[in-house]
Nucleic acid binder design. Structure first.
Length: 421
RNA sequence: GUGGGUGUAGCUCAGUCGGUAGAGCACUGGAUUGUGGCUUCAGAUGUCGCGGGUUCAAGCCCCGUCACUCACCCCA
């Protein structure tokens, strides 16, 4: 019995890697242009970090974390998200003292013990960005402009930006009470899930998919009507900036975020071509989080994108791995040895070169050259060895020229793509 | 954690009433002493997920189990 991988933890095979790299390099260049620097943090943290940041009563902390004790009896957890570790690092290294504005991005695997389904895995990858130290709505808008731009750069148009405001510690409790009072009146018409969580997380009822709940909450009070003056001004400034920059968005007052630390602006990039896991990027402001984690009282805002979901949206793109420059078809041991010398020289010179390491027929070697997408092929047999000259074939047109098989530099200069010279 | 669907060749899948395993693609070789793509001919390929049961006989029926997958829940 061979050993299989772990449920929900997928291999990313060579044929898919080009798409992943495309997403990653696009994110790097876009985030870089917006002034973000990469930070790399461990995938394991003390369990406490996530309990304090994400919230004790969230599903993530209650039942989805990969938590274990190490040999020293510390409780450790495989990170289920990236913001908390980045904030921990920022506090620990007092980065804010070096620069009062921190713009950071990260990329890497996250872990949640959930039942896998389309777009949802136990090990999944996020690329996220965070800004710490600025409470201006300009930054909220900048994050959204960057997100919008990233999707355009990567070529995904089947997404819609939704925004909302969750208020702050001044105005949210009042809204929460109003909502609970409202739901309490119609408890009977809510689904069992909503009944169960209605005291702990009443907001959930607002985006419940059960028709009965949708109906019952149609007239429910809306956060946006309960915002304090500060939050209201902030939210309208964000909207104005987005309009000025021609970023299209819609307001979804029923949008709920899964992590406790969000305040004020929250947002999601939604698609309808991914099945039920429709959020491809999401985030929001988290003004109290850093202080809660033992740092200074600094505002923050950020988001994370699900890389698997991005790749799924790009799957029809069918990017391929780089094609090779030259395939050397050698016939016979002696030719193979000479070919191998030339091959190694070219590879060391940075040219993508390949050959057949077994002694197959020329036909099959040419087939392989074609399959690898070689730009050129060089055919070395017995005649060529005695003449010290071999046909170099242009695989797209089919025309051939004879080249000196001892003049490695000469082969290199005709075969190398322009950019490597 | 709950529910549905699917497990047969490397891949996508067919397999009738239970009668000893098939196609396309891919692969290998030939047609072209030594030239890829297009065409054509030939060839190789199986723990029918696994374990048990019924039967003269099981890919097919029954029981169990595992894996994958979609959905609920939740979320990126």
């Amino acid at each position: 019995m061979s050993i299989a991988g772990i449920k929900g933890m997928n291999d990313i095979l060579p044929e898919d890697v080009a798409t992943w790299q495309f997403v990653e390099t696009t994110a790097r260049s876009v985030f870089g242009a917006f002034g973000f620097n990469e930070i790399r943090v461990p995938v394991v943290e003390k369990t406490e970090l996530f309990c304090r940041s994400i919230g004790e009563t969230t599903d993530i902390v209650e039942k989805e974390m990969y938590t274990f004790t190490d040999r020293s009896d510390n409780s450790l957890t495989l990170r289920p998200e990236g913001t908390a570790p980045v904030m921990r690092s920022l506090i620990q290294h007092k980065l804010i003292n070096q620069n009062p504005v921190q713009k950071l991005y990260y990329s890497g695997p996250m872990f949640r013990y959930e039942r896998p389904q389309k777009g949802r895995y136990r090990q999944f990858h996020q690329i996220g960005a965070e800004v710490v130290g600025i409470d201006s709505p300009l930054i909220d808008a900048q994050i959204l402009v960057m997100l919008d731009h990233f999707f355009k750069q990567v070529g995904i148009s089947d997404v819609a930006l939704q925004i909302n405001s969750l208020g702050c510690p001044q105005c949210r409790p009042g809204y929460r009470d109003a909502l609970i009072a409202f739901l309490d009146q119609r408890l009977a018409s809510l689904c069992s899930d909503c009944q169960r969580r209605f005291r702990q997380n009443p907001l959930r009822a607002l985006d419940c998919k059960v028709p009965g709940c949708k109906e019952a909450t149609e007239e429910a009070p809306i956060v946006l009507d309960h915002l304090c003056a500060g939050c209201d001004d902030h939210f309208s400034a964000v909207r104005t900036h987005l309009q000025n920059l021609e970023v299209s968005f819609s307001i979804n007052p029923r949008m709920v975020r899964g992590l406790d630390y969000y305040t004020k602006t929250t947002f999601e990039m939604i698609t309808n071509s991914l099945g039920s896991q429709n959020a491809v990027a999401a985030g929001g402001r988290y003004d109290g989080l850093i202080q809660k984690l033992g740092g200074p009282d600094l505002p923050g805002i950020g988001f994370a994108m699900g890389v698997e979901r991005l790749v799924l949206l790009l799957s029809e793109l069918k990017l391929t791995n780089a094609q090779i420059d030259l395939f050397i078809a050698a016939l016979g041991t002696e030719a193979q040895q000479h070919g191998f010398k030339l091959l190694s020289f070219l590879q060391r010179s940075g040219v993508r070169a390949e050959m057949d390491y077994t002694d197959k027929s020329l036909k099959s070697q040419m087939r392989r050259a074609d399959k690898l997408g070689a730009r050129y092929s060089l055919i070395i047999g017995e005649d060529e060895l005695t003449k010290r000259s071999a046909p170099l074939r242009n695989m797209s047109g089919g025309e051939q020229i004879d080249v000196d098989i001892d003049n490695f530099e000469g082969v290199l200069s005709t075969v190398a793509p322009a950019e490597t010279l």
